[in-house]
Design a protein around this nucleic acid. Structure first.
Lengths: 191, 191
DNA sequence: ACCTGAACACCGTTCAAGT
DNA sequence: ACCTGAACACCGTTCAAGT
């Protein structure tokens, strides 16, 4: 009868996915700066040390959160349409996935290494650019320009500053930036 | 004779600028993740509490570091040449100023609010775009695209990933991205 | 296999009291 | 004006021991 309790129920043993789920909830509640393994353990009804059975470090846990965000970005549907429309859709999915979790853009920016989902996301982007006619190196470079822009914009937007601007204005500004990058890529694709 | 010692010398009272200078040194030595007010106090030969006389918080200190970086970026000389060359020079100065300090790009990304130097930097960028013929809103939007790209690229470059690529390759990739953004802006300026 | 208990080596911040 | 001393309320991580 010495089983661990959580929210009044006797709990199943933890596994990586329930720890990750609780981490996502804690991140949304307190933000990245206040995110702590000790609070997370308390929310799970467990002692801190228990988490280290499932994840080797706090950073590994945050990397799993980053992968979760990347998975969302990679899972968004790709519309029919020309390469420019598809690129714009990928950029929006990328930003939306980060905005969906508190400090999501900073979690992505601070991840220690891109995981399989981050690679899948980037490969889909590269795929669109290759279909548009770029070679492997050109597509990788062009993909890097777009993702760098989206990351930079969204970190700024989510962390501060743009917060006092209306959401409509931020939306317009982002759409403008995406169209600028795509316009800059156009001569490479069609040229 | 109870005066504070530092490096074997009797030290002058601290002020904001010597604390900032020591903070810049500590950042370069240990990086943002290991940066702590207690180590900083030790390096200054002082107790932790003393720092809080000069800066209200660790974040305020990091904001001062961010301002220092922004000042470097704003102070870089603007070449003669057309708007595109001037924009490219600003983008390079922006990246160089962040790369000059360990984790500089993340310090900029995590600053709580842009200070006067950050504004001065951005105003210079906007000035170039206005001289090129854009109106106030267009110049601000265009300036945002470029700075977002530079921030996103440099955070990624400095934090990880691109580290295993050669510096020459990163340089080329950055130059490519800047040229893409500028090409995307060209129709707005000249159209 | 999974978790507890307890420790270790740190943190940022506050503030009365000293000089 | 500027700093000390000392505390407060936390951290992330490790690991023998329990079940």
């Amino acid at each position: 009868m010495g089983r661990r309790r959580n929210n009044g129920r006797f709990a199943m043993p933890l596994d990586r996915s329930v720890v990750l789920k609780a981490a996502l909830e804690q991140l949304d509640e307190v933000g990245l700066d206040e995110f702590s393994t000790r609070k997370l353990a308390a929310a799970l009804g467990v002692r801190v040390g228990a988490l280290y059975w499932h994840y080797p470090s706090k950073q590994a846990l945050l990397d799993a959160v980053a992968e979760h965000i990347a998975a969302d970005a990679a899972a968004a549907p790709l519309p029919d349409g020309d390469w420019a429309e598809r690129l714009a859709a990928i950029a929006r999915a990328h930003r939306d996935a980060m905005l969906a979790r508190r400090d999501g853009a900073r979690v992505i920016a601070c991840m220690s290494a891109p995981g399989p989902m981050a690679h899948a996301f980037f490969e889909r982007l590269v795929g669109v650019l290759r279909e548009a006619g770029l070679d492997a190196e050109g597509a990788a470079s062009a993909g890097d320009v777009l993702t760098s822009y989206v990351n930079g914009f969204t970190v700024e937007e989510q962390a501060r500053g743009l917060r006092r601007q209306s959401e409509a204005h931020r939306e317009r500004l982002f759409g403008f930036g995406v169209s600028v990058v795509i316009a800059g890529l156009r001569p490479l694709v069609e040229g």
